[in-house]
Amino acid sequence: MREILRQLGALGLFGLRIISSLAPQRGSGHDLVRQLYSVGARSIPIVAVGGAFVGLVMSLQGYRTLTTFGASNALGTLLGLSLFRELGPVLAALLFCGRACSSMAAELGLMRTTDQITALEMMAIDPVRKAVVPRFLAGVIAMPILTAVFCAFAIFGGSVQAVWVLGLDPGHYWAALQGSVSLVDDYGQAFVKAAVFGAVLSLIATHAGYHAQPTIEGTSRATTGAVVQGSLMVLFLDFLLSALFY
């Protein structure tokens, strides 16, 4: 219990430290672009493929269940609401956690192990500002974009399955989506959730990496910790945000 509280406190203080050094400086734009590339752009394949398969399988399963009640025309509603409200942001965040947060934690852990962070401090460069802030910001910016990609692939994957394989009328599918998904309440909230998840995930990952034990074992433990704690935190926060929003 004490350990959990200590961890939470350290995490909060680290977050404050990141926020206090958010102000842009020379060269920080370039660092941010490089992080966005490695954290965001290179996560596109896994997120797109993941989204497409989630859409396919939800369409299939939803159709099986809904036809029992003769309500297969509500497939678009089922898919749209569950994707935008829960599955889109959460699954994109879990994929992001495994794909990007692990590498963030490992990079920072290795920088700690090889004394690069100390070297930055010796040169009077704030290591948080130079190494941590770009990663954090990249996470916050990349997560909503990845969520949009995930949802788009899931919705279009679902429509392919529904229309071509199951023989549903495309008009019904899209009309059900447009009739039931609210732009602000459902669609907008997905991006709010995604930004929150992005911030929390990259905070956890950078914290774990930055404070890793300066050994090989410490780096691997930090990477594992970042993924495990990040995934749990996403699921917990999703429950909290859903209870708040809906």
């Binding site: 966005l36 590339y37 788009a152 459902d186 991006f191």
Partner: peptide, 30 residues
Amino acid sequence: KPEIGVGAFILLGFGCALALAFSSTDVRSR
């Protein structure tokens, strides 16, 4: 290379968001 990649990434993201908004939400009725 990273600049091009990030540009494509952000464009793709906004493209997906817009396509989603117009194809599967009630934005038209709004």
